[in-house]
Simulated assay, not measured.
Amino acid sequence: MLAMERIGYLFGGFAALMAVVYGVWNDFTEPVGVVGLTLGALLGFMIAGYLNITRRKLDGVPPEDDPLGEISDIAGDYGFFSPHSWWPLWLAASSALIFLGLAIGWWLVALGAFFTIPALVGWVFEYWKGPHAL
């Protein structure tokens, strides 16, 4: 995590330096490049800051930063992945219908939204169990 944090600070510093160089080179007459590089610098600093805050909240040294650590120290549960869900297919098809509607007509966007909302709700609540299940 410490290495990724340093890479974020390095990227942010480089993008900030290049924003200044780009602005001076063009006498700040073309603002799009300066804005893009500044946003890139802010993105790098934001990621590095998040990693810094997260690293400080952890107890002790994270396994990836321990020079004597073993690969098995990081092993753990990566989460639950649905083996046979059809909801992503319907969500992708209805989202494609929305984006196709942006080129063809707004009526197709409305039709795609009509199919996207149930597909999204179905995918989110697919494994929701209990007395208040849908």
Rank of each mutant, 00 (worst) to 15 (best):
L2R: 12
L2C: 12
A3H: 00
M4K: 05
M4I: 14
R6H: 13
I7H: 13
G8A: 03
Y9P: 01
A15P: 01
M18N: 05
V21T: 11
V21A: 13
Y22C: 00
G23P: 06
G23R: 04
W25N: 10
W25F: 07
D27M: 07
F28H: 01
T29Q: 13
G33C: 10
G33Y: 06
V35F: 13
A41K: 02
L42A: 14
G44R: 07
A48R: 00
Y50F: 02
Y50T: 01
D59M: 11
D66T: 03
P67Q: 04
P67L: 10
D73Y: 07
A75R: 12
D77A: 08
G79C: 07
G79M: 05
S82Q: 05
H84V: 00
H84Q: 03
S85G: 11
A92T: 04
A93N: 03
S94G: 04
A96I: 13
A96E: 07
L97C: 10
F99V: 11
A103Y: 15
I104L: 10
I104N: 06
G105D: 12
W106P: 07
L108F: 08
A113G: 12
F114T: 13
F115S: 01
F115I: 08
F115A: 08
F115Q: 04
P118V: 10
G122K: 15
F125N: 08
Y127C: 13
G130C: 15
G130M: 14
L134E: 10
